[in-house]
Amino acid sequence: MDEAKSEILQGTLDLMVLKTLHALGPLHGYGIARRIEQISGQVLLLNQGTIYASLVRLLQKGWISAAWGTSENNRKAKFYSITMRGQKQLREETENWERIAGVMARVLQL
């Protein structure tokens, strides 16, 4: 049960990271975490470090890419950006998610 729950959460987090990168363009871990915190508060991120497991997962699947760069404050940071395949995945996942959310909403309203 525990594992299943965390898997949903992981999936959700991954999707949010993809969406963030899609919306804001190349971004470092701090920026992504900040953005997700702004939107969801502490619901998804226990702490900002959690974001990195998600980033590694997405990198391994080839949906995002990473490169060292310089931040707006002239600090060395690793920037992540969404790949073509990531875009495609995001589209599919979004549709999927909306469909499920719609169904769930209807079911739960019964």
Binding site: G29, Y52, A77
Partner: peptide, 15 residues
Amino acid sequence: DFAEELESHAAMLVE
């Protein structure tokens, strides 16, 4: 590499 990345993240939080 990862330690460096975390370091930079921490630095941004400190700022």
